[in-house]
Design a protein around this nucleic acid. Sequence first.
DNA 1: CCCGAATAACACAGTTTGTATGATTCATGT
DNA 2: ACATGAATCATACAAACTGTGTTATTCGGG
Lengths: 205, 205
Amino acid sequence: MIHECELHHTTCMVYDMGYRTPDPGNPRVQSTRDRILAAARELLAETGPAGLTYSLLADRAGVTRQTLYRHWPARSGLLVDLILEGSDGGYPEPGADPAVVAAEWLASLRAGLRDPARRAAVLAVTAQADTDPDSAQALAQLLADRLAAFNDLLKPSGIQVTAEEYTLLSGPVLARVFFDRAEVTDEFIAAAVEHWLAAPSEEPG
Amino acid sequence: MIHECELHHTTCMVYDMGYRTPDPGNPRVQSTRDRILAAARELLAETGPAGLTYSLLADRAGVTRQTLYRHWPARSGLLVDLILEGSDGGYPEPGADPAVVAAEWLASLRAGLRDPARRAAVLAVTAQADTDPDSAQALAQLLADRLAAFNDLLKPSGIQVTAEEYTLLSGPVLARVFFDRAEVTDEFIAAAVEHWLAAPSEEPG
DNA sequence: CCCGAATAACACAGTTTGTATGATTCATGT
DNA sequence: ACATGAATCATACAAACTGTGTTATTCGGG
């Protein structure tokens, strides 16, 4: 496939079989695409990953199945777009105090994962990442974006973190949300930040 | 459904429609059950969660589809059994030094998650936990078991940890494996342990 | 206003899914 | 050893989902 036109992260691809992804610049395309993604989030939240069927989704979105296949010839692409879309927004303010920035960052992470549809989308992509390279790359992209955004907020403090250090900070919150399935309290966030900042042999920056 | 016979965590249930889960005590049942679970792990590792079909699984396991429905009337039950089975084993030795115990514990966690089939099973159950109570409970059970096992190893040190503290320790490793999809190095484990033990205001015990 | 695209409206074969039914194999208790 | 009940097999069936077409209609940009 060949890249053609671009619009933020949404690229229009041309496939060998004369099929092509709709032009993201077209408002009609944007409209149906948004309607589909919204319906997908609903279905995902209501019925889980197994219930996200092209048939059901088409009905829910008021769209034909062929439209779905045109937009996402591979089903995994839909999930990928679900997590790449709406990932931005809601970031806290930069600050000089790493403790404050880290705490607010984790709080925004918690807020973003309050949405069941988003949780389901992230897990679905993660689950298929082992067998689908596109999903694996999307996850890597998401991580890189968030790491960069976090480091942006840390600029006033003069500290920058590596990917490993970022995971040491965010890991507990992610595990609490996805695996423990328990409330991420302010105390939990405070504890995570304190542990993270309590640098033993080396500074986390 | 009514509980009837028990064998470790495997309980035989009787359903309203005259259907019942096979008796776990029967060696024939155990045999086919093991063969099915082994085949399920293969399929899960090879084709991902979407490829784990009752039809494919039946063929792979050399079993009829009806046998699958008899063992697991609900598909989610299969995934649940996949993570509950084989979760034990490979635990490190107890010790008086929390740092050593924690590091060895994380190493054993990493070792357990080296198996792609196990990773896929955990993610699949996690993904459906939001819509399937059984899966949610299985996850909670798994967490409780591991927390108890970890506290067992910590007994010689006189330290016991809460669920939150356990997640603060294991979260980074889980996130590294599932979301970062990157190698969990010995250095990463060492850093996680050091951060965890560097108690800021309160001791983690 | 016209042309090309995006979409709708169908159609079709193949697969998966639940759910039956009867025959056959196996484990267990007497 | 043998009879009984279970577990499994071998089928069958309708329903839903899946890819993939074809044609007609609607919409947006030049």
